[in-house]
Simulated assay, not measured.
Amino acid sequence: MGLRVAEIQLVNCGAQPYVLEGYPRLSLRDDRNDPVEVAVEHGTAGITSGAPAVDAPPERVTLAPGQAASMAMVWRNLVTDSTVAAVTARIVEIEPRSGAPRLWLRLALPVDLGNTGKLGVGPWTAVGR
């Protein structure tokens, strides 16, 4: 079925509380750092159902120094049209909150979208440590 789910954590390495609300802004990049065309949407609609980490309602998360938050991504590696090239991204570019510096995360395993062109993103949630 090609269903994939990945979690990304953000740790507050600063000395002050860090507030996150809602969803991070994401974009994908290929091996050459070029942007990948993908529709990034909140939740799992059109991809799958029953992924609680992605479909959870957004909440305000305040991270004390050393605390972490996570967000989940969901996609399908599915090729529905053999005339359209499959897409693979090794870099996730994340803006944790509006106006924050964008972070680049090079992945060990790629986001292999096939040719679906869809990526579902869940809200930030606190991580218990």
Score class of each variant (00 low, 15 high):
Glu21Phe: 09
Gly22Lys: 08
Gly22Trp: 14
Tyr23Ser: 06
Pro24Gly: 10
Pro24Asn: 06
Pro24Arg: 09
Ser27Gly: 11
Arg29Asp: 04
Arg29Lys: 06
Asp30Glu: 07
Asp31Cys: 01
Arg32Leu: 07
Asn33Ile: 00
Asp34Trp: 02
Asp34Leu: 09
Asp34Pro: 00
Asp34Val: 05
Val36Phe: 04
Glu37Phe: 00
Val38Asn: 05
Val38Trp: 09
Val38Gln: 06
Val40Cys: 12
Glu41Asp: 08
Glu41Met: 09
Glu41Cys: 06
Thr44Met: 04
Ala45Gln: 04
Thr48Gln: 13
Ser49Val: 14
Ser49Trp: 10
Ala51Asp: 07
Ala51Cys: 11
Pro52His: 05
Pro52Leu: 04
Val54Asn: 03
Val54Trp: 03
Ala56Phe: 01
Ala56Cys: 03
Ala56Asn: 07
Ala56Gln: 07
Pro58Phe: 12
Pro58Leu: 13
Pro58Gly: 12
Glu59Gly: 08
Glu59Phe: 06
Arg60Asp: 13
Arg60Pro: 13
Gly66Val: 15
Gln67Trp: 15
Ala68Arg: 15
Ala69Pro: 12
Ala69Cys: 07
Ser70Thr: 04
Ser70Gln: 05
Met71Asp: 01
Met73Leu: 14
Met73Lys: 06
Val74Trp: 12
Trp75Tyr: 13
Arg76Pro: 01
Arg76Leu: 13
Arg76Trp: 00
Asn77Gln: 08
Leu78Lys: 06
Leu78Trp: 02
Val79Met: 08
Val79His: 03
Thr80Asn: 12
Asp81Thr: 02
Ser82Asp: 08
Ser82Lys: 06
Ser82Asn: 11
Thr83Gln: 11
Val84Arg: 15
Ala85Gln: 13
Val87Lys: 09
Val87Asp: 07
Thr88Met: 01
Thr88Cys: 00
Ala89Lys: 05
Ile91Cys: 07
Ile91Thr: 14
Ile91Met: 05
Ile91Arg: 01
Val92Ile: 02
Val92Lys: 01
Val92Gln: 01
Glu93Pro: 01
Glu93Tyr: 03
Glu95Trp: 01
Arg97Trp: 11
Gly99Tyr: 11
Pro101Tyr: 10
Arg102Trp: 10
Leu103Met: 12
Leu103Val: 12
Trp104Cys: 04
Leu105Gln: 06
Arg106Phe: 05
Leu109Met: 11
Leu109Lys: 13
Leu109Pro: 10
Val111Lys: 04
Val111Thr: 07
Asp112Pro: 00
Leu113His: 10
Leu113Cys: 07
Asn115Tyr: 05
Thr116Ser: 11
Gly117Ala: 08
Lys118Gln: 14
Leu119Met: 00
Val121Lys: 08
Val121Tyr: 07
